[in-house]
């Protein structure tokens, strides 16, 4: 077809390019098609595709932002959670140590109390023993004195004469002590 057209063109060169082409080809339709299509494309780009693409891009951007924000907030909450968890752990440990301390302190206090009591009791026992010993000593001395007097009285009765207490006391006391030791 193309070749034919060119052959025809060369033979009919005088009658003009367009008229010779028109016998074979409706050039008008071609021009109209291209013009119509181009116009349609330009108009649609301005009135339909452009705005639509704009809003789609905008939406894509919004979605991307939203995703980013969601990711960010997820990270934030993760961090917060981690923090809270750490705090909780710390509080737990604190509580544990406080309880431990209290227990230890109580134990120490109890021990100390027992120690004090025991010491007190020991001291009181010692005191009592000392006192008893003193009293015993005193009583023995008293008894001994009484005994000396009685012995002298008895001896004076037996001898029938006055025995000087002052002269013989030392002797009697020595005897009593000896007797006490012998017992």
């Amino acid at each position: 077809m193309f070749l034919d057209t060119f052959v025809l063109l060369s033979s009919n060169a005088d009658s003009g390019f367009l008229s010779s082409l028109n016998q074979r080809l409706n050039l008008g339709d071609i021009i109209a098609t291209v013009v119509f299509f181009t116009l349609l494309m330009l108009l649609l780009k301005k009135f339909a595709w452009g705005p639509l693409m704009g809003i789609m891009d905008q939406r894509a951007e919004m979605i991307a932002n939203e995703i980013e924000a969601a990711e960010q907030s997820r990270l934030d909450s993760q961090k917060l959670l981690e923090e809270q968890r750490a705090l909780l752990k710390e509080a737990h440990a604190n509580a544990q140590s406080i309880v431990e301390n209290a227990k230890k302190q109580g134990e120490a206090q109890r021990e100390e109390l027992i120690q004090t009591t025991r010491a007190e009791v020991g001291r009181m026992k010692d005191n009592a023993a000392l006192e008893i010993a003193t009293e015993k000593e005193k009583a023995i001395a008293a008894v001994r004195e009484e005994f000396v007097s009685l012995s002298i009285m008895a001896a004076s009765k037996v001898l029938g004469k006055e025995v000087s207490e002052e002269d013989n006391r030392a002797l009697i006391e020595e005897t009593i002590v000896k007797a006490g030791e012998g017992r």
Binding site: G16, L18, S19, N22, N26, L27, G28, D29, I31, A32, T33
Partner: peptide, 8 residues
């Protein structure tokens, strides 16, 4: 000088 097909 250009032929058109009005239907087209």
């Amino acid at each position: 000088g250009i032929s058109f097909n009005p239907a087209n």
